[in-house]
Design a protein around this nucleic acid. Structure first.
Lengths: 175, 175
DNA sequence: CGCAGGGTAAAACGATCACTTTACCTCATG
DNA sequence: CATGAGGTAAAGTGATCGTTTTACCCTGCG
């Protein structure tokens, strides 16, 4: 594994497990297995590193959510949480820690949520036969978001509950 | 207003708007309008102050969620967000910033979510005529949580969507 | 008046922060 | 063999962190 991949992997893990501000650069160099000089040559700055981590996270997460059914979407989320742990959405956490004042982080958050929303819309369009209901998509998105957050204190079972709710909502159709 | 109230109010606002670690004690003393000596006599430490803020927040939030219908619950959340802004659940943010390693914060998070869950259960029991469905309560809780999180990037409208979804779920009954 | 309680402003504390610099090492390639 | 690119370890940078200390100032009360 090359230096850049090692750095991004270590950084994502540390940021996720301990928080962004709480993670010092000395700990980062140790976990990434490289000198601070190389780290700064690769990352530029801590802020830029956070942005890079979020970009990579977005790619990896959406890849995992590349499914073609509502059930698959929530199963994929449950798998993700079982593999990565339940510590809440990393994008919202980054946004919250920086007070929403860092443009790059806010942009990454928006792009990530927009992409996820479009994926949900596509899944629903396929399931309901092209009938695109933006309100229903938003409700499924909220269930997905809520399951991610609630899993922090209720565990993976929250995802199963959200999954059942989403299915019931779609079956009930437009209210 | 006495010193303790001024401190808690200023601290809650700063923590919420800028993050916990990003808020320095110098800024806190300035906004609370007192010397650092008085602040430390009242708060003990920054960690203790965070815990106190969360306790006060729990009280104030649950007081606002003291309603007797499902519609009222989500309307109360919308009112809260309109008044306080949409920056996500402060308890989950505190938990995330500290990596879940501070016992007092984790305890405050658990207590808060447990109390909210019981409130939702009570509302549902009243609405469905005593039929206590714990899964339905969890689903409404997830919608509530999801709306709080999604409001950060989609605005208050997320709460209206969650409200409609909750109503549809309850009307559909046990799946 | 005398004095204690509770406050202030501001300096000082050591620790830690993100980041840079210095000095040295390794090694493939012309 | 010489060399330059790319790496390391470690010390140093100034700033900022949470917290404590110092010295002083009101003010209500016996």
């Amino acid at each position: 594994m090359d230096h850049r991949s090692k750095l991004l992997k270590a950084a994502e893990q540390l940021f996720d497990r301990h928080g962004f501000t709480a993670t010092g650069m000395d700990r980062l160099t140790r976990d990434a297995g490289m000198s601070s000089r190389t780290l700064y040559k690769l990352a530029g700055s801590k802020a830029a590193l956070i942005a890079s981590v979020l970009t990579e996270r977005d790619r990896r997460f959406l890849q995992r959510m590349d499914v073609d059914s509502l059930e698959g979407l929530f199963d994929a989320l449950a798998d993700w949480i079982r593999a990565e742990g339940a510590r809440g959405c990393l994008f919202l956490r980054a946004h919250g820690e920086t007070g929403g004042n860092q443009a790059a982080i806010t942009a990454a958050l928006w792009a990530h949520k927009q992409a996820l929303f479009e994926r949900i819309q596509a899944i629903l369009a396929a399931e309901t036969g092209g009938r695109g209901d933006p309100v229903l998509a938003e409700q499924v998105m909220i269930l997905h978001e809520g399951a991610t957050a609630a899993a922090v204190y209720r565990g993976v079972d929250a995802v199963a509950a959200a999954r059942a709710a989403a299915i019931a909502l779609v079956r009930a159709g437009p209210s």
